[in-house]
């Protein structure tokens, strides 16, 4: 059978699993503004996130409730409406970009970064990365230990580790992923 009119990827999951995965990914993009996943997941997440930002730009309570159907996390919902949506007020779509990376060692899966076109410190790319470095350096001692525990227990730790741990089973990601995500998070 031809797959005409069948948009979207199934990502090798059943409906519930896929929905849960995408919600987790969406939450992560909103909170960290930049996430690293497989190319397929990045592109699939992009489909949804773009639509959510467009709705969030309206900013009404009705729009908020509509978005809340997908973004169940209050912190993410607030950030989407209060900081991300105003940033894209003038942009007619295309709020995110997917940057391809090297294939993942292990399973050779094509990886990519999904990020918002405009990041938190506006128009200061070098400074931004410098700041992130500092943040990363400051956080590493605090976060490494809980993250490792989470790896072993596959359960909660501190906030950052807990989130990555809850996503990991779905995304089949290991420790490598945890660090960049944990850094981008706070």
């Amino acid at each position: 059978m031809s797959r005409h009119l069948n948009a979207g990827r199934k990502l090798g999951r059943n409906t519930g699993h896929r929905k849960a995965l995408l919600r987790n990914l969406i939450r992560s993009v909103i909170l960290s503004e930049s996430i690293r996943t497989t190319t397929a997941k990045a592109k699939e997440t992009r489909r949804v996130v773009e639509k959510l930002v467009t709705k969030a730009r309206v900013g009404t309570l009705a729009a908020r409730r509509l978005v809340h159907r997908t973004v169940r996390d209050q912190a993410a919902l607030a950030k989407l409406f209060d900081t991300i949506a105003p940033r894209f007020k003038e942009r007619p779509g295309g709020y995110t970009r997917v940057i391809h990376l090297q294939n993942r060692p292990g399973d050779n899966a094509p990886m990519a970064i999904l990020e918002f076109v405009e990041r938190t410190p506006k128009g200061e790319e070098p400074k931004e990365s410098g700041e992130e470095k500092k943040k990363a350096a400051g956080k590493k001692p605090a976060e490494k230990k809980p993250a490792k525990k989470a790896k072993a227990a596959e359960g909660g730790g501190d906030q950052g580790a807990g989130e990555t741990a809850e996503k990991k089973p779905a995304k089949q990601k290991k420790a490598k992923k945890e660090k960049p995500e944990g850094e981008g998070e706070k």
Binding site: I99, H100, L101, Q102, I113, E132, P180
Partner: peptide
């Protein structure tokens, strides 16, 4: 580097640093 991919060493793609902490 492979085409259309960020450089794995310096983390740069199209003149911008893409991967943090890799410059």
């Amino acid at each position: 580097i492979l085409p259309h991919r960020a450089c794995p060493k310096c983390g740069e793609y199209q003149g911008r640093a893409v991967i943090e902490g890799k410059e």
